[in-house]
């Protein structure tokens, strides 16, 4: 499952210099960066769910999901949560950053063929899920009905609004369901947590795979709802995050039992996670 096509062929720990060609302010604390090599190429070709190590020289380096790619760019979405991510949010378009990857396994795009897909995202957790959503639309004939269920704290915290409200609802045989924990005076959509809305929407667990990512507490209750609705843990697929330094299974810290999230993950089925020590 691991893609060995790392951009830094001779030394996977040394990044290549790239430039940020576009910055999108998704929410007050989330930005999306479109990144390209200095000579105008796509830094690498990730599979959905794979990771990239992004660095600001002299500040730090961290692993983020590659949420999208195009002909000559990749995109990652970063939430302001600490020293490094604060520095990312200070960047201007044109800034040079270090990029290495892609790392880790990917969403099981082949085993999901012929199935209906239910994508569930919470908060910034939509970022990794989005890579598979885009892949599914790019290979539309391979998949059945597509449902996207997304929740955030408030309307202002919704990421990828253009996709959620303009692009994705136009796709064939696709429904987008957006909910917020707390609405505001202009919000006309659903108000409520993801698990409750999920049960209300009453998806049938027949020939359907679920791809979910979000904060741990949301995953916990969403999974409970999914199991109640009759989904099996084998059919529920998620992606994990963990502190990482190397990204290639050497530096040691992202292990859960004998698995490294950077190498054997980040994508696991809920059934696979049940086999690992409870240490997430």
């Amino acid at each position: 499952m691991v893609n060995h096509d790392c951009t830094c062929k001779d030394n996977p720990l040394v990044p290549q210099l790239c430039k940020v060609i576009k910055i999108t302010q998704e929410t007050p604390d989330v930005q999306t960066y479109r990144v390209q090599t200095l000579d105008g190429k796509r830094p690498f070709t990730p599979m959905p769910g794979q990771l990239g190590m992004f660095s600001l020289l002299g500040v730090g380096e961290a692993m983020f999901s590659v949420t999208a790619y195009g002909e000559d760019w990749i995109e990652t979405s970063i939430k302001k949560t600490g020293m490094l991510t604060d520095a990312f949010h200070e960047m201007a378009e044109g800034q040079q950053i270090g990029v290495r990857g892609p790392y880790g396994n990917h969403f099981p795009v082949d085993p999901c063929k012929g199935k209906d897909l239910l994508f569930i995202g919470g908060g910034i957790g939509l970022a990794p899920v989005r890579s598979f959503i885009r892949y599914a639309f790019a290979h539309r004939a391979d998949y059945g009905k597509i449902d996207i269920l997304y929740g955030s704290r408030s309307p202002a915290d919704l990421v990828f609004k253009e996709d959620l409200f303009d692009n994705w609802p136009k796709e064939p045989d696709t429904a987008v369901h957006v909910t917020v924990d707390r609405g505001d005076e202009t919000w006309e959509g659903n108000v409520g947590m993801v698990p409750g809305y999920l049960e209300e929407l009453a998806f049938q667990p027949v020939n359907r795979k679920v791809i979910l990512c979000g904060p741990p507490i949301m995953i916990k209750f969403t999974l409970q709802s999914l199991l109640k609705m009759g989904f099996s843990k084998e059919d529920c697929i998620t992606t994990l995050e963990m502190r990482m330094k190397c990204g290639i299974g050497k530096c040691g810290r992202c292990n859960i039992g004998s698995k490294f999230v950077c190498l054997d993950g980040p994508v696991f089925t809920m059934a696979e996670l049940d086999e690992l020590p409870d240490e997430m």
């Binding site: 060995h4 790392c6 001779d10 030394n11 996977p12 720990l13 290639i248 299974g249 050497k250 190498l263």
Partner: peptide
């Protein structure tokens, strides 16, 4: 080993 060689 283990998928990647550490060049250093």
């Amino acid at each position: 080993g283990d998928k990647y060689e550490d060049a250093f």
